[in-house]
Design a protein around this nucleic acid. Structure first.
Lengths: 232, 232
DNA sequence: TGCTGTCTTTACGCGTTCTTTATGCGGCCG
DNA sequence: CGGCCGCATAAAGAACGCGTAAAGACAGCA
């Protein structure tokens, strides 16, 4: 995405107050705000103006904003930052699962919103230019993402089934020391539909630990939450 | 958001005396007071001028100040400090539950009010930077939200159960010195259905204080209201 | 058809965590 | 002074989550 002129930011919200507040603020921050009051208008403008980023309110008069996310994704890769007054965890997860890039709860500080906008734009830039490292070493474990190989202590490549590999990859990609929730792992490996089947995880984490042998300790359980990958 | 010039403080109160008293006092303290006598005017000014903080009286001619708090929260995260009559503890709790950041009992000492204003502004400033680095240090306590870790004096990570972690996170996220009501904590950790089971809080705050050891003093009880996190 | 490897599902033991109840303490008001 | 309320702490049974094993389902393949 080119940075010619001011990046356009499409604001989809039905409250005039929000537009009064955000319009000048976005301009002052060097963006060109586009204004839409309904979902239909938002989708139309997103198609016509090709904004660099979309700020999307979830509570719109003509429908739940969540259903708009897949439709937006159909014709633009612009990051979607969801604005919502609902602080319900479930809403947040549903929006992110639907493809939103970030989520800002509606008592928002302007500074935080701008920081998240910058971060989202930075990511969308980086996604185009920066390939992920294809090989990651962590303690005795070496994971080669492009070859879909994993080995321990430089020995023979592990014989992993597809699901086992996906699970290991999801854990390693999360980064060392980072907790990855059960739902994140389940949606990454089995898809959003199986976000509740935690038993799958127990079974396959068990398989992985067995095959990892000396590196089994790299997968640590975070009870009630998920798993954490890494040493120490 | 630019911090050019003095931070604006919106004072919403129907008593001219209060404005006569607070106006010069706030100016002398380096703020730019904005004056509103009614709820409607206060909301309008809050949207137009984007004040850094709102001082809100609860007893206004055109409606209970409490209902204004969610509306303010819809478009700004500027902290709201409530001015309340002394003997109305229920009012105080309701305002905090509605999203107020702090309360000052009327009649108030100017020094205390200014101190609470400084604290609230400090918190809102911190809120802009915190979500990005996600590590918060407060006295001897260090909390890493993305890693779900907490440690005291740089020692070993605390072994916290899910509920204990959720409770600590809710307290720390509130910011240093901020009061969080029992209901807010209960709904954050146990869900809205358990908004009344204050005994849970006593049990788990007890567990937390025990595990925090030297940092136990960071969780202070606010009798009849909730808990306050932070030093001093 | 039978074999093989993978995935899904069920069952169960075990340790941890949560919930609930009981009890003591201190402040506040009549 | 005595009773009441809210807070803090301890303890015990109930409930839950984790890990493991193992059986059935299903597809690929000879």
């Amino acid at each position: 995405m080119k940075d010619a002129g001011s990046p356009r930011i499409l604001v989809v919200d039905d409250e005039p107050q929000i537009h009064r507040f955000l319009g000048p603020a976005l301009e002052a921050a060097g963006y060109a705000p586009q204004r839409a009051m309904t979902l239909a208008e938002g989708l139309r403008l997103a198609a016509e103006r090709a904004p660099a980023l979309v700020l999307l309110d979830l509570g719109l008069p003509d429908g739940d904003g969540k259903i708009a996310i897949p439709r937006l994704r159909g014709f633009t890769a612009a990051p979607v930052v969801v604005l919502s007054a609902r602080d319900a965890e479930a809403e947040k997860v549903a929006a992110l699962d639907a493809g939103a890039d970030d989520y800002v709860e509606k008592p928002f500080a302007l500074g935080e919103l701008l920081a998240r906008i910058r971060a989202a734009l930075r990511r969308s830039q980086a996604a185009v230019t920066q390939p992920l490292d294809s090989v990651v070493r962590t303690g005795p474990l070496e994971v080669d993402f492009t070859r879909r190989l994993a080995r321990v202590d430089g020995g023979e490549p592990l014989k992993l089934t597809p699901r086992e590999w996906d699970l290991l990859a999801a854990l390693v990609r999360g980064g060392e020391g980072r907790v990855i929730t059960q739902r994140q792992l389940l949606t990454a490996v089995w898809g959003p539909a199986h976000g509740e089947d935690a038993q799958y995880l127990r079974v396959y984490v068990g398989h992985l630990r067995q095959k990892l042998g000396a590196a089994a300790g790299l997968i640590r359980t975070e009870p009630g939450v998920g798993y954490r990958f890494g040493t120490g």
